[in-house]
Simulated scan of single mutants.
Amino acid sequence: MIYFDYNATTPVDPRVLEAMLPLFSEQFANASSGHGAGRAVARLVEQARGQVASLVGTNRRNVVFTSGATEAANLAIRGVLAGAEPGRRRILVAATEHKAVLAAAAEAARIHGGTVGIVRVLRNGAPDLDHLAASLSKDVVLVAVMAANSETGAVADVRRACGLAHGAGALFLCDVTQAAGKIPVALDAWEIDLAVLSAHKIYGPKGVGALVARRRLQNRLTPLIVGGGQERGLRSGTTNSAGIVGFGRAAAIAAAELTTDADQLRRLTALLQHLLTEQLDAVELNGPAVARLPNTVNLRFAGADADAVMTSMPEVAVSAGSACKGSSSEPSHVLTAMGLGSTAASESLRFSLGRPSTEDEVHAAVGHVITAVGHVRALARRTRTRPHPRVFSP
């Protein structure tokens, strides 16, 4: 299997697993316990909090551990809307946000009384900041724009978007799940109020993520899970010590190797794109040519249904959309928001490379893709030209 779906999830780095293993056996104490063993684990958790904070350019006190970015987005959006003033209950969300953010905004508006407005995106997938500026008014409480899109890799100018939101008196939420570990993230320098991310996108374990919230905002948030008051009362439940330590170690590795990883992935992704566009006709790039994640390219193979192509090349793992799309037959909401028709969107594949990817894998994958696309196109042509059976009535 050639795995080119690293934006969906990543394997746990062996160095991360090594850091986690003692938390399952030797250092298994509850981090909330007052005895020495518990305090030792609590120190490891706090070390991890600092490592995650360092990766995204914020203070460790702003990091609240959750089960993942989805929970973090729900905690942030519902919390902000629950405490919003009566005249400020509209949320603006970019059209290409992850379904976790889109659904959380819709649910928060339903529960707490509010509305959700959609910010258009440009043809290359970047948010239309002129449309954002025109959509802002005194009734907007929160603006959500992701730093980088999982399907096209499009990188947004979130610093400018945040400035526009603040100018209208609104808070700003940034999903940095795909950006963290791939490009530099500087939440405090960008003046971001709220951000979300997950460990399993940066070679850490699944089931752990974080909400980054400025301390002045944490008191305004309403917890989704109540109980023992862990994570400063924002996320109760026995601390997932092993997962958090793994998250921290993954963040530290990502920070240390970000430049090296990015250079290597940019080279391999460019090679993949070059070979496919050179050796296949009717291949179109979805998304920006330059301002995108170094590991991601989304290509349309005109005349070849993406699901059929994937079925025809079981040796290669790629995606026809984000992992949240699952088995849905609907075209990608990201690509349709960019202006692609349903047919064009259904003929598009995302290739997302990762730290373990090699040049040999790129060449092998290209061969499989060329064969699969050729097979699917030929089958489609035969289907279109096959004469319809004639029906005779007595």
Rank of each mutant, 00 (worst) to 15 (best):
L75C: 07
A199M: 03
F65P: 02
V208G: 05
R110L: 05
A37T: 04
R120P: 10
V140L: 01
I91G: 00
L171D: 00
H363Q: 11
G113F: 00
A242D: 06
L265H: 06
G207W: 07
I253P: 01
I183G: 07
I244E: 00
V297C: 10
T66L: 12
G36K: 10
G287F: 00
A106M: 05
K182E: 12
V176K: 05
Y3E: 13
M338P: 06
R300I: 05
I370A: 10
S33Q: 13
G167P: 10
S198D: 01
A210S: 13
S135Q: 15
A365S: 10
V391C: 13
N149R: 15
L21C: 03
Q47V: 01
A337V: 06
V176C: 09
S322W: 01
A337W: 02
I370K: 07
T383E: 15
T260M: 06
S25R: 07
D175K: 04
L379E: 15
V373E: 14
A73M: 08
E278A: 15
T222S: 12
I202C: 09
L217R: 06
V116T: 05
A252G: 07
R266W: 02
A308E: 10
A255S: 13
A262M: 03
A378E: 11
K138L: 07
G209S: 07
Q218E: 06
A180T: 09
T259Q: 14
T70D: 14
R159Y: 03
A154P: 01
P11Y: 00
K206A: 15
G153D: 10
V64N: 02
V101K: 06
G117P: 08
H166Y: 10
A170P: 03
L299K: 09
L75G: 01
Q51H: 15
A156N: 14
S198R: 01
L224W: 02
A252C: 11
R214V: 09
L275W: 06
N286A: 15
R88L: 08
V212T: 13
I192A: 00
Q273Y: 11
S332N: 04
L293Y: 07
R78W: 00
L234P: 04
T371S: 09
P205F: 02
P389K: 11
L122G: 07
V63C: 11
I370V: 15
A134F: 08
Q264F: 08
R220G: 03
S137C: 14
F247E: 09
L293K: 01
Y6N: 08
V309H: 09
R120M: 11
T385M: 12
D175Y: 04
A37L: 05
A213N: 06
L142P: 05
V52R: 07
A134I: 08
G303Q: 07
L211Y: 05
S332M: 11
G207F: 14
A165N: 08
